[in-house]
Amino acid sequence: MSAIVKVDDIHKSFGSNHVLKGVSFEVNKGEMIAVIGASGSGKSTALRCLDRLETIDQGQIEVCGIRVDDPKVDLHLLRREVGIVFQSYNLFPHLTVEENIVLALRHVKKLARDEARRIAMNVLEQVGLGQKADAYPEQLSGGQQQRVAIARSLAMSPKVMLFDEVTSALDPQLTGEVLRVMEDLAADGMTMLLVTHEMAFAKRVADRIIYMHQGKVWEVGDGSMLDAPRTPELRAFLDNGL
Rank of each mutant, 00 (worst) to 15 (best):
H11F: 10
N28P: 01
R113P: 07
T167K: 05
V7A: 11
E125N: 14
D51H: 07
S2H: 11
F25K: 11
H18M: 02
S168D: 07
L234K: 04
T55P: 00
V178H: 06
L174R: 13
T96F: 02
L174T: 09
V181K: 07
M212E: 01
P93S: 11
G189L: 00
A169N: 01
G59L: 04
G42K: 00
S153Y: 06
D207L: 10
M121W: 01
R67K: 12
R67G: 05
K72N: 13
H197V: 11
L78K: 07
K21D: 09
T167Y: 02
S157Q: 14
E138G: 12
A151N: 10
M161D: 02
D57S: 10
E165K: 07
E81V: 08
D8L: 11
T96L: 00
E54M: 08
V19S: 02
E81G: 06
D239M: 14
S13W: 05
C64Q: 04
M190K: 14
A236E: 15
I150L: 08
R235L: 12
I33D: 06
P229F: 09
I66Q: 11
V148C: 10
S16V: 03
Q126K: 15
N90D: 03
L154R: 08
E62V: 14
Y89P: 00
A116W: 04
D9S: 13
E98L: 15
E26M: 13
A187L: 12
K159N: 12
R52F: 10
R67L: 13
V23Y: 00
A133M: 08
N17M: 05
M192C: 12
E54R: 05
E198N: 11
Q144W: 00
V160L: 08
R117W: 08
I210Y: 07
T96Y: 02
